[in-house]
Design a protein around this nucleic acid. Structure first.
Ligand code: FAD
Length: 501
DNA sequence: GAACTCGTTGGCTGC
DNA sequence: AGCAGCCAACGAGTT
């Protein structure tokens, strides 16, 4: 008796069943050929040491939701403890795999896995289907349209995609039939692991502010799209980085994990905007989604996009090294209350507003600490629920004036910037509670408070709250000079490389 | 080729 | 109060 062959859909950053063409392809293939269907996810048992706790928890929640949504389709999620490169080839044999589907992911981690897996699959005669479905547009065809060059400005990017027809979403309309169920479909060994199994004590964590999963992502999307006026009036630069509740959608963790399809977001946005006066890119909500597309295209077309050295779009800057400053920044004890509040919110809740990211990214790099954006990106990778390879690197380069943005003399002031939207410093009082009782006059610069006021407020600077690790007023001007030098050197280098005609 | 335009999510001063 | 002008820029257009 020969075994029934298997069709695998390999879930990665597409933790959803809606608008998932690769998953639908797998289901159809299994149905048509009466093969077994196995939607799989690989999880590294050591993941705890590689991913921040909040993001890991978000991932587990998303996998649980995915499993329960798959069960509604009469199948399930098979979670494999291990890694794809070692374990997928073993499963190819064990399950007699004939067909493998997944989405295109451009993070080098997945690209490398795909290269290895493709080679093995070819030898074993396994048909591989890989779908572009993590972005609205296909980055490769946008690059082609621009003669293989990365569009270096947002407007240029928009002009390239302007006349591209965005495909409709695809849905899975019927349940998977019983004949596609493998025998071990109920085996506990493929259950979504608990945090406990992964060596994490959930009770030691704060409650989740943003619950992972497709169900939550869709309901968040629908909630915002129902507020048509709000969507139509959205202007990113006017949203507040330091409101107590988020002033933007916080769809990012869902989009990054693929709990929410960016294409569905696109179509729902178009629907909400249709027939109403509305703001436009770059500041509109649709404009935000286009920023994502912009950075994805850049990431897809640039070597070493997540590094400075060997990255053709990135200005080479002689960043310094200062582990103490880096640590103080990461842990929210720079002595600048606004910066510290942001970093503490990031660590606690896993999401901070875009302009808050501007503030702390500028502070770490060209503004104050003169530390490489790559170091900042690593910290963000750890703490952000919405961590994304392209978006993180691209935005860090923007903020450090290494690529896409060049007016380096526009420096965020850790004292002035937050005051624009939060004069009283309520945000600081929440996330830096030791300063809670400070008078408003000193909440952004507690070192200026007279000693008796510091004592009355119950927080002496240098004792209960750190002294400033740098003097912004002085150092940002020095750094500005360093930027001038770096830009000049870069320009000279570029001129040398250009062929003289 | 040079010289223009526009777009590109700061802060500070002074009217 | 709100805005113009100033401060160390650059890509991608057009003229
Ligand atoms: C230094 C730095 C690092 C960043 N790292 C990441 C990251 O790892 N992952 C990530 O998703 N975003 C990152 N961003 C971009 C941006 O800050 C977040 O996408 C945004 O704040 C998410 O909040 P939201 O969903 O409420 O955004 P909204 O304003 O509601 O926008 C809707 C969606 O548009 C997309 N979007 C919005 N802003 C941007 C942007 N600037 N670039 C690209 N896409 C955008 C996101 O998918 C977002 O969910 C980073 C920004 C900076 C400055």
């Amino acid at each position: 008796m020969s075994k029934v062959p298997t069709v695998i859909h390999w879930f990665r950053l597409d933790l959803r069943i809606h608008d998932n063409l690769a998953l639908r392809n797998a289901i159809n293939e299994a149905e048509n050929r009466k093969h077994h269907l196995r939607p799989v996810y690989f999880i590294d048992p050591e993941i705890k040491s590689k991913v921040g706790v909040n993001r890991l928890r978000f991932l587990i929640q998303s996998l649980q939701d995915l499993d329960s949504n798959l069960k509604k389709l009469n199948t399930r999620l098979f979670v494999i403890r291990g890694n794809a490169i070692d374990d997928l080839p073993k499963l190819f044999d064990k399950w007699q795999v004939k067909f493998l589907t997944s989405q295109v992911d451009i993070d080098p981690i997945y690209v490398q896995q795909d290269e290895v897996i493709d080679e093995i699959a070819e030898k074993k005669n396994i048909f591989v289907v890989r779908r572009v479905q993590h972005t609205v547009y296909d980055g490769q065809s946008v690059l082609k349209k621009n003669n293989g060059n990365v569009p270096m400005t947002y407007q240029k990017f928009l002009s390239l995609v302007q006349d591209i027809q965005v495909k409709e979403c695809v849905e899975i309309t019927k349940e998977v039939s019983d004949q596609c169920k493998p025998k071990d479909v109920d085996s506990k060994k493929y259950d979504v692991p608990t945090l406990d199994e992964l060596g994490l004590d959930e009770s030691a964590l704060e409650p989740s502010k943003y619950l992972g999963g497709e169900t939550e992502g869709l309901s968040r999307l629908n909630m915002y799209m129902a507020r048509r006026q709000w969507v139509c009036k959205f202007e990113k630069p006017n949203s507040s980085p330091n409101s107590i509740e988020p002033s933007t959608t916080v769809l990012s963790p869902y989009i990054s994990h693929g709990c929410l399809s960016s294409k569905l977001f696109y179509h729902k946005l178009k629907e909400a905007l249709n027939g109403m006066p509305h703001t436009d890119p770059p500041v509109s909500l649709l404009g935000q989604l286009m920023w994502r597309e912009f950075y994805y295209t850049a990431g897809a077309g640039t070597k070493n996009f997540d590094k400075m050295v060997g990255n053709p779009v990135c200005t080479q800057i002689h960043w310094g090294k200062n582990d103490e400053h880096l640590k103080a920044w990461a842990e929210g004890r720079t002595g600048y209350p606004f910066v510290d509040a942001i970093m503490r919110q990031l660590k606690q809740e896993g999401w901070i507003h875009h302009l808050a990211r501007h503030m702390v990214a500028c502070f770490l790099t060209r503004g104050d600490l003169w530390i490489s954006w790559e170091e900042g990106a690593k910290v963000f990778e750890d703490y952000l629920l919405d961590y994304d390879w392209s978006l993180n690197a691209g935005n860090w380069m923007w903020l450090s004036a290494s690529a896409f943005f060049y007016k380096f003399f526009r420096v965020y002031s850790p004292v002035a910037f937050g005051k624009k939207t939060d004069k009283e410093g309520l945000y600081i009082r929440k996330y830096v509670p030791e300063l809670k009782k400070y008078p408003t006059a000193f909440i952004y610069e507690p070192w200026k408070a007279p000693k008796n006021i510091q004592i009355t407020a119950g927080c002496v600077v240098g004792q209960d709250y750190p002294k400033r690790i740098v003097d912004h007023d002085k150092i940002h001007k020095e750094n500005c000079q360093k930027m001038t030098v770096a830009y000049r050197l870069n320009k000279e280098k570029k001129a040398m490389k250009r062929p003289h005609s």
